[in-house]
Simulated assay, not measured.
Amino acid sequence: MNMSLKKFLDFLLPRFVTEDVVFEELICRGRAESWSPACAITDIKPGERYEKIGTIRSFKFMGGSYGIQVIGELREFKPKS
C-alpha cells in the first residue's frame, strides 16, 4: 500500500487505539502535581529522557485523540541503550 494512502486512511478512519506513551511530571508552584502524557514511545528522539511509561487507550479521528484513558499503573521508563 502506498505510504501516503496509508497515512491518509490513518488520519481519516475513526478507531480505538492502545499504545505505550511516556509521561512527564507536571510541576505547579515548585511542587510535583501529576503526570501528563508527553508522546508515543515511537516518537522519542535520541537524547530525550522521561521518567515514566504507561499504556493508554484513546479514540483517534481526524488526527486527534479523544477520551484518553490510562490503563494500569505507570512504570519506570528504561530506554534501550
Rank of each mutant, 00 (worst) to 15 (best):
K6Q: 14
S81M: 10
F61R: 12
E51N: 12
C39T: 09
V21K: 04
I53D: 13
S34W: 01
R57P: 04
A32G: 05
K60W: 10
T18A: 10
K52M: 10
E76L: 03
P79R: 01
F11C: 05
D20S: 12
G67S: 05
S81E: 15
F8S: 14
K78W: 00
V17Q: 02
I44A: 08
A32P: 06
P14Y: 06
P14K: 12
Y66E: 08
F16L: 09
D10S: 15
M1H: 11
P37Q: 04
K52S: 10
A40N: 09
R49I: 03
P37N: 08
V21S: 00
S81R: 15
I44S: 09
L12K: 05
E73W: 01
R15M: 09
A40K: 11
K52G: 05
D20G: 00
R75L: 12
I68L: 05
P37S: 03
Y66I: 15
W35Q: 04
L12S: 10
M62T: 04
E33V: 07
G54S: 05
A32F: 03
E25V: 09
T18L: 03
G30N: 06
P46G: 04
R49W: 00
V70P: 01
F16K: 08
R15E: 08
S58C: 12
R29E: 14
S34F: 08
R75T: 14
L12A: 14
E51K: 13
S4M: 10
G72Y: 06
L5A: 13
E19D: 11
K7G: 00
E73Q: 11
K45E: 05
R57Q: 11
D20Q: 15
Q69C: 09
F59M: 09
I56E: 02
I41P: 07
G67D: 08
A32W: 00
E25K: 08
R29Q: 13
S4T: 11
G64R: 15
L12C: 14
D10K: 15
V21W: 08
I71H: 05
G54A: 12
F59P: 02
L26Y: 02
K7S: 12
F16Y: 13
V21L: 01
R49S: 11
R15I: 09
C39M: 12
W35Y: 06
